[in-house]
């Protein structure tokens, strides 16, 4: 009976969504705001990647809210998991391939992560993706050596500085008489590494913050595994 009602619910919802989706024109030119952003973005923001200029330039406050949500989720997960001082390390050490492969791949992951962050305004990528890669890079040794752990204090210091610098860059724009988080500085030539004003700095802050948050979250999840 419950299965039947559940399937009925899902089917009805699907019908409703299909009715909505059939009203959307597929493959038509973008919305008015999309066209406006496409035409105005190279002059106003100066980032070759228009998604970046939307994420950080036009909707910078949304990104700040997103960082706040991610911070709240990570700290709530840490709070719920709690109890840092339980034992770890009853799991066997990783095998030869994992141990040395992890050590070998670590600098590559670090390089790729910083490349993605630094080129966020030129190529696809940016702070979030690069932050995820940095977190994975720092977490990989923990998979190989279960006894090891990340230093939570260093991580929280990095995270705090990154978040504070994000807000400070935004406030600096405010002090210049512009809008909060509006890109400043010299915008330089479109497409070179140093361009787009403060956007790369903002993305570095986002990348470090996301990386530190996710790394501490992952190491929180990995700890206390021998409890049960």
């Amino acid at each position: 009976m419950r299965n039947l009602t559940g399937l009925l619910f899902a089917g009805g919802l699907g019908f409703m969504l299909l009715a909505i989706a059939s009203g959307i024109d597929f493959g038509t030119p973008p919305m008015r705001i999309g066209e406006a952003i496409q035409s105005a973005s190279p002059q106003e923001v100066g980032a070759a990647n228009i998604v970046t200029s939307v994420v950080l330039g036009y909707r910078g406050i949304d990104t700040l809210g997103e960082l706040a949500i991610l911070f709240a989720a990570a700290s709530a997960a840490g709070l719920v998991l709690g109890r840092r001082h339980t034992t770890t390390g009853t799991q066997r050490k990783g095998g030869f391939v994992l141990f040395h492969g992890g050590a070998l791949i670590f600098p590559f992951l670090l390089t790729i992560g910083f490349y993605i962050i630094f080129h966020g305004h030129l190529t696809p990528g940016g702070g979030f993706q690069g932050g995820v890669i940095l977190a994975a890079a720092f977490f990989l040794p923990l998979l190989a050596r279960p006894g090891a752990r990340l230093h939570h204090s260093i991580l929280s210091v990095i995270e705090a500085f990154a978040g504070a610098s994000f807000i400070l860059i935004g406030l600096a724009a405010l002090a210049e008489g512009q809008a909060f988080l509006q890109p400043m500085l010299n915008q330089d030539t479109l497409g070179s590494l140093i361009s787009a004003g403060t956007l790369p700095l903002l993305y570095i802050a986002v990348g470090l913050k996301v990386g530190a948050e996710l790394a501490s979250l992952l190491s929180n999840l990995a700890q206390t595994e021998s409890e049960q």
Partner: peptide, 17 residues
């Protein structure tokens, strides 16, 4: 012509959240 960047930025946010 380019695709609309605004939904992509929204989805970028949604995935991370």
């Amino acid at each position: 012509a380019m695709v609309d960047p605004v939904p992509q930025a929204m989805v970028l946010t949604a995935i991370v959240i």
